[in-house]
Design a protein around this nucleic acid. Structure first.
Lengths: 343, 343
DNA sequence: AATAAATGATTTATCGTTTGACGGTGGGCA
DNA sequence: TGCCCACCGTCAAACGATAAATCATTTATT
């Protein structure tokens, strides 16, 4: 059915090996011959069989995407996938995924299968949760080119620059004249801060850096727990913050759900946003229901995806090159939840 | 490095072909011999090279996942991925994805590449938006086993049973004594209903079916437009519904964002949920900020994934078997937004 | 003019596996 | 005793490509 190099060879009267060289642009075939080969290839609708190619050359032109997730409610950002997909396609790489921890067996099996059965060229690791020691050892032992996504660590990794984002969010409010700016995070308890994702710490750290630079003091409110369970408690906490007599004029929210709590409680308390209170958040602009379009720092998912594949491709080509961690800057989306300070 | 069947052959003193037969359980080798082969295979840490296998047998044991999305804000449910992943792994199938419409080139290229370069065995198509005619023709022409996900159509497909879900949501409220039950959808305008995703029509249809069966009349409120732009308008609409003098006692919301609008406006209007108003929604229980845990009909993403892979595997084995569309029932999650009718 | 180097293509070998044709061995049956 | 057949394997080719070695021409060097 599908045309192979042998079909091309017959059609142009060459050996199939010569066709192979020609198609790959080897200097061993004459330019004129190459032209003929390309023409015939196009004519016959030839497409190289990557599978056959892989068996001999050892390069499969495919990379694995090792998935993982903390919670059942978690989503895989389509923008991240989009970035991965676009860059992979541009480089002729196929993206094979698996390894979700739903099933122990699946999880254990994916990486070995990918490498020895599939002879994949490299691995993208998308772990929000803690990285299993076993996995790290496996990577080292097999010397598989790999890049971690959305994780800050010593090895090759690509992540969003949370510190910078926290700083920029604060700076944005400072430039509008705000002096009392608070950082609010209902997604993590203060006492569990060390064990959770670095974004919880880094966004705050960036915020604090900007405040210190401006010679102002930081105010941090933390609370809540697992997402759904303590929703009432969070609502109360949000209320106590916004309806306090000397509340801040600006609030930086760690997450969209934190922001929604703040917005709703402000509305309930009759506090006008952005006139009486400026709110800036992270992630997504849509906040499902308040009617207020948030000003947010946007996780550069797409860019992270593109960068990750690019870096992995580099590591595959040059396994000995040392690849440094890459921090991708956040995007900024102006909404209607921020204003110059009133008084 | 990695052991091949030849290594096994040497170790047990057989031809490599015999080993091949033994490993695949062919009746051509004696049971005792097979045992020896398996032992040696385990000893040497043998893993079949799928790539080499594919080139000869034509079966790659891999399936493609063709992605697509309407909006930039869309997510790929991790539960769906989980279902696909688990079932694929159980069947020894690898899952290769691509084809997002970010880039025309990528999109056009993915399917042909997957099939002719990759020799993938089948295709899962995850299209929420309209299905390109070109794609359908391609599938037909190439006779690729394929299954559509989350799409209702004549060919093999797996989708959530929206009609049933709408019916069950209404029935749930009816059983609690509600008579005035409304269906609210802020995600679609009434005039665009025909052109949008069937879920918008089917959830309503199910609701209407249940109401008719109970001998009650349906009340449908639709409005809004693209998600972010008309948020204010929606908030107003929600307010007008819940603060109306003779409002319904129960509301079925098409989506979580619709539900959030309803909840917030109820809170602002001082209407107690669920005491004065019962709300039941779709999708996700978390509603980011109101503090109320919603009662919802949950899209069976995981089950859809499992079923889709299972069906595709069947179509790959038996290409001539006719596979009917499969409707997977929704899950139900009890929350705290529904109560027996007050008066 | 003889030799060396460059050029362009062919030959042969190989990757790891599957596949179909074929061949010894031994037992059952007439 | 002879014949057939089931059983258990081996052989050799094939899959679609790559890679190295080799060979036949030209073209350049002295």
């Amino acid at each position: 059915m599908a045309a192979t190099i042998k079909d091309i060879a017959i059609s142009v009267g060459l050996s199939h090996q010569a066709v192979s060289y020609a198609l790959r642009g080897s200097p061993k075939v004459a330019e004129a011959t190459r032209q003929r080969v390309f023409l015939a290839a196009k004519d016959l609708g030839y497409r190289p069989n990557t599978t056959a190619r892989a068996i001999r050359s050892g390069r499969h032109r495919s990379i694995g995407l090792l998935l993982s997730t903390v919670s059942k409610r978690s989503y895989l950002p389509i923008q991240l996938i989009g970035g991965l997909d676009t860059e992979a396609a541009a480089r002729g790489l196929m993206l094979t995924m698996g390894g979700l921890p739903d099933d122990k067996l699946t999880r254990e099996g994916f990486v070995p299968r990918l490498l020895s059965e599939w002879s994949a060229d490299g691995l993208l690791i998308n772990y929000q949760e803690g990285i299993p020691e076993r996995l790290i050892q496996l990577m080292r032992a097999e010397r598989v080119p790999s890049v971690w996504i959305n994780t800050k660590q010593e090895a090759a990794c690509v992540y969003a620059d949370e510190i910078d984002a926290g700083d920029r969010a604060a700076t944005h409010l400072l430039e509008l004249g705000h002096k009392r700016i608070a950082f609010v995070d209902f997604s993590h308890r203060a006492d569990e801060l060390q064990s959770v994702h670095y974004s919880a710490r880094d966004r705050q750290a960036g915020y604090e850096r900007a405040m210190t630079r401006a010679g102002l003091s930081a105010e941090v409110f933390r609370g809540g727990g697992p997402v759904v369970e303590d929703n009432h408690e969070r609502a109360r906490y949000a209320r106590s913050i916004v309806s306090s007599g000397d509340r801040p004029t600006g609030i930086i929210c760690y997450s969209i759900s934190t922001a929604t709590h703040v917005l709703i409680q402000s509305m309930l308390a009759g506090i006008s946003i952005p006139n009486e209170l400026s709110v800036i958040s992270f992630d997504d602009q849509s906040n499902g229901g308040t009617g207020i379009l948030l000003t947010t720092m946007i996780v550069p998912q797409r860019e992270i995806g593109v960068t990750a594949v690019r870096n992995l491709a580099m590591r595959i080509e040059e396994p000995n090159e040392v690849t440094a961690p890459v921090a991708v800057p956040f995007g900024f989306a102006a909404g209607e939840s921020v204003a110059t300070v009133s008084k």
